[in-house]
Simulated scan of single mutants.
Amino acid sequence: MRKIIVAIALALVTFMTALTLSAQRFEPIDQLVVFGDSLSDTGTVFRATNGAYPPNPPYFQGRYSNGRVWVEYLADRLSLSTSQIDNHAYGGATSSSYSNGLVPGLLRQVQSFTQTHSSVNSTALYVVWAGANDYLQGVNDATTPVKNVIEAIASLSNAGAKRVLVANLPNLGQLPATRNTANSASLVALTQSHNQGLRRSLKVLGQQQPDLEIAVLDANALYQEAITHPAEFGFTNVTNACVSSSRACDQPQQFLFWDGIHPTTAAHQILGEQAFAAIAEHLPSNAGVLHTKL
């Protein structure tokens, strides 16, 4: 009889624990916490330079584009307000732990965040996208940038983060600023190496930290699809920059690229939609509790 009672008690404990974990996993995303570079910056550098950079106009209110950027469109899809976006991304940031003037690298951004938060919001979605500036600024091996991105994610997880969205890199050798340069071929190879290394490393991290839910935004595939089939995305120009010498083209919504490196807000909106789809697909425990529907 005693064994039966003990068995029942253990079963109840297991059941209640499972219910608690299930309830935690199905809590809706209630905040975006963003780390990265100019692709995700919503005005951090603009405020740090007292509105001097990026210049407005032609850039839009501190964004490196002609309108809002992808994390803002993603927040719309999650029904999150501006106050629910905690953005630490800096234009010009690399993946490193160093600061270049006013600009802290990805690891420094995460370190500053975890040091100032004794506990982090476990129902937030933590966004990590960096690495492009490492290669554009001369890094010629993908090992360290990939390691830095993984270390940033692991640090967030160790601090209590449960949900992470990480993006890979678009083809850095096929940007308007790089396509016809001597570095184009090497940047193509570095992009491929980075994305392959990131994919392998994320798989290992997932095995090491099974409680961490990771969604991947395949920006590389999305850019390539837009370049190959522009009309399907509403674009007529996927090779040139819309803005040149502070003068913008007449129909920026038809351009993939705003300047030599950064996408237009039309492209950012597509990235935001794809990010939302990735969350629904790769964070299945959250798919039923997103604030909006696909």
Rank of each mutant, 00 (worst) to 15 (best):
Q196W: 01
Q196Y: 02
Q196H: 00
G197V: 00
G197P: 00
G197H: 00
G197A: 00
L198T: 04
R199N: 08
R199A: 12
R199T: 09
R200A: 07
R200L: 04
R200E: 12
S201E: 10
S201H: 06
S201R: 11
K203I: 12
K203L: 14
V204G: 09
V204I: 14
L205S: 04
L205W: 07
L205Q: 10
G206V: 10
G206M: 13
G206A: 14
G206C: 15
Q207P: 15
Q207L: 15
Q207I: 15
Q207C: 14
Q207D: 14
Q207T: 15
Q208V: 15
Q208C: 13
Q209W: 05
P210F: 06
P210Q: 05
P210K: 03
P210A: 04
D211T: 11
D211A: 05
D211Q: 14
L212A: 12
L212N: 06
E213M: 09
E213N: 11
E213Q: 13
I214G: 01
I214M: 01
A215P: 04
A215S: 07
A215G: 11
A215E: 09
L217G: 08
L217C: 02
L217A: 04
D218H: 03
D218N: 07
D218L: 06
A219I: 09
A219W: 12
A219S: 15
N220I: 01
N220Y: 13
N220W: 05
A221C: 11
L222G: 07
L222H: 03
L222C: 10
L222K: 04
L222E: 09
L222N: 09
Y223S: 02
Y223L: 02
Q224C: 04
Q224Y: 08
Q224D: 13
Q224S: 12
Q224H: 08
Q224I: 01
E225P: 03
A226D: 08
A226Y: 12
A226C: 11
